[in-house]
Design a protein around this nucleic acid. Structure first.
Lengths: 174, 174
DNA sequence: GCGATTATGTCAACATCATTGACTTATTTC
DNA sequence: GAAATAAGTCAATGATGTTGACATAATCGC
């Protein structure tokens, strides 16, 4: 019932400002994903493939289960694209050293090259935006986005350089 | 060939920082859309319906063509969800006053109420993030996101209070 | 006024990405 | 050795998007 207390120093945020933020997110995401989508299409792949390639690239030797937790999709859905990527030679599977039930995933050479091709327009775009916004702007961007993410994954993101990198090492220790 | 010139004052952005931004965007968007998705599902609707409801709500009397330009989908795809929303009484259509070929779209009462239900969790989330990031943080967030959006729509966004609002009035005058 | 253009809608076929539910196999854990 | 876990698979279904072709009504240009 009682609305959340709010320190006097932080004025209430006007609804229109919040709605603007919502749209900003929509448009940015729409345009941000459009470039890689165009690269993927002629290869008979889509956004789902991109996500898998990206997260395997950033988390070498990630397990299928960890990937599922990141993507928040079902394993049937993941397996369609993952199977495709494995068959086409972009991703290699190897049984885990400690637990041989696991199939640890890694990008092959051609997977790495695909990853770079896909992320290139995104890196360009983000780099330009970061440059235009300046150091403080980027800090604000990171802070807001991080708060938008559910707590569970927030920890991963702040973890360290590799962003999701700490996950593969730590997740199973909890 | 020649890499873009970059003022000495703005150091080159490390690739890992850029990649972190990419992931931030992925996770934020994933969690940001999850709440409304959960509300929509039992109503037999999805994200596409949400987008239509949102943009019609923010741009009363928008035309179908303008909506298509914002969403960047085909009219066949739009018509499936739009038809659904009209049949269910969430959106009303009225011929344009000046041009009777147009079917101007408006939220009905129940459409407005649906819009509020859907945006409520998003508003809460964004308001919390804005609060946590502070005034400067929000400014940075806006600047970066705006730069990520393609130029074409950037103008709309900065336009004014209604974000996309200026569009319906101005777009056709160019 | 008449032909061209524009705004919108519709039929049909198909691709992608997601879901639920049930079941299998291999391996590890207790 | 039984139970739990990691991964994969078969099958059906739904939401969202696409291309292509065509239809209707209203407006525009001359």
């Amino acid at each position: 019932m009682t609305p959340k207390a709010r320190p006097r120093s932080e004025p209430r945020i006007p609804e229109d400002d919040v709605r603007e933020g919502i749209e900003l997110l929509f448009f940015a995401y729409r345009d941000f994903t459009a470039d890689p989508d165009r690269i993927l299409a002629p290869l008979g792949m889509g956004r789902a493939h991109h996500r898998v390639v990206h997260f395997v690239g950033r988390n070498p030797a990630i397990t299928v289960g960890e990937l599922l937790a990141i993507l928040k999709i079902t394993k049937q859905s993941l397996n369609r694209v993952l199977g495709h990527l494995v068959r086409e030679g972009y991703i290699a599977q190897r049984p885990g050293a400690a637990d041989r039930r696991e199939r640890r995933l890694t990008l092959t050479e051609s997977g790495q090259s695909l990853e770079r091709r896909l992320s290139e327009p995104q890196r360009t775009r983000v780099a330009a935006a970061y440059g235009a916004a300046g150091r403080d702007g980027v800090e604000g961007f990171r802070r807001v986005l991080l708060e938008l993410v559910n707590k569970a994954d927030r920890d991963r993101l702040v973890g360290g350089r590799g962003v999701t990198a700490p996950l593969s090492a730590k997740a199973r220790l909890r």
